[in-house]
Amino acid sequence: MISTSAAWLAFFLFAGMMTYAGIKDVATMTISNRLVVALLASFAVLAPAAGTDIATISSSIFVASGVLACTFVLFSLGWIGGGDAKLLPVAVLWVGPELSLQFVLYASVIGAALTLALLQFRKMPLPVILEKNAWSRRLHAPETGIPYGAAMAPAALLLLPESHWFSALL
């Protein structure tokens, strides 16, 4: 009974926190360290409680560590933001090693579409109704980056039903 309850909690917690990260990234162009730490701590508590086997937990940690090394390099080159560099490996930790490549691919495709849309949006004058909002002015500014948390969130949500979290619910 506890493993099913923990799996449900993990399922909705991860979905909610990733959705929050995506929305917050669009609104503020930041992904908070607290959110990343909360996701990490929640995984550490909920994965064993949900009955996730040690092999899956270990391989998830291994793959997420590799992704962290890659995102650290991308961040140091200035290609991605610090929040994105931390959120991506933690999200990989949650989706698991079997879906990690698919997750990165989905996030990349969604991120590319988001980038193209923002580039087009930034070529147009900002609509008057949006000029009052700091977040829309920031998003419209050409010098502002791309909020890739907004791409990672839907990628995670698309794959969550295929993850070990969902199979623990069945």
Rank of each mutant, 00 (worst) to 15 (best):
M152T: 06
I54P: 10
A153M: 07
M124A: 07
G51F: 07
I54W: 12
L39Q: 15
K86Y: 00
D25S: 10
F103E: 07
G81M: 11
F62A: 11
G83I: 08
S76D: 06
S59T: 11
Y148T: 08
R34G: 15
V92R: 02
S76V: 03
L46P: 10
N133E: 00
I110M: 06
T115V: 09
Y106F: 13
N133Y: 01
L13H: 13
A21S: 06
L39R: 10
L13A: 15
P97N: 04
L159C: 04
K123N: 07
I23N: 14
D53P: 14
L160H: 14
V95G: 08
A41V: 11
S163Q: 11
L35Q: 13
G22V: 05
F12P: 01
L13E: 12
V73W: 05
A134H: 09
L105N: 06
S108P: 00
W165E: 11
L126I: 01
L39G: 12
R122G: 03
M18D: 01
W79G: 04
V128P: 02
L13W: 15
A69P: 00
G111R: 03
F103I: 06
T56A: 07
H164Y: 12
W135G: 03
C70L: 07
L105C: 09
C70K: 01
L157W: 07
H140Y: 06
G66D: 02
M1C: 04
A50E: 14
G81T: 07
T19E: 08
L88K: 03
G83V: 03
R137N: 07
T144F: 02
T115Y: 12
L101Q: 03
A156D: 12
V73R: 05
R137Y: 02
M29K: 05
I129G: 00
S32E: 15
A47W: 10
I61N: 04
L99K: 01
S58I: 00
L87I: 01
A50C: 12
A113W: 13
L88I: 09
H140G: 06
V45C: 08
A141C: 08
F75I: 05
S3I: 01
R137T: 10
E131Q: 09
F62P: 02
K86Q: 00
V95S: 00
A112K: 03
I31F: 04
F72S: 03
F166S: 15
S167V: 13
A168D: 03
G16H: 09
L170S: 15
P125R: 10
L88S: 10
A156S: 13
V37S: 13
V36I: 11
W165F: 05
I80K: 02
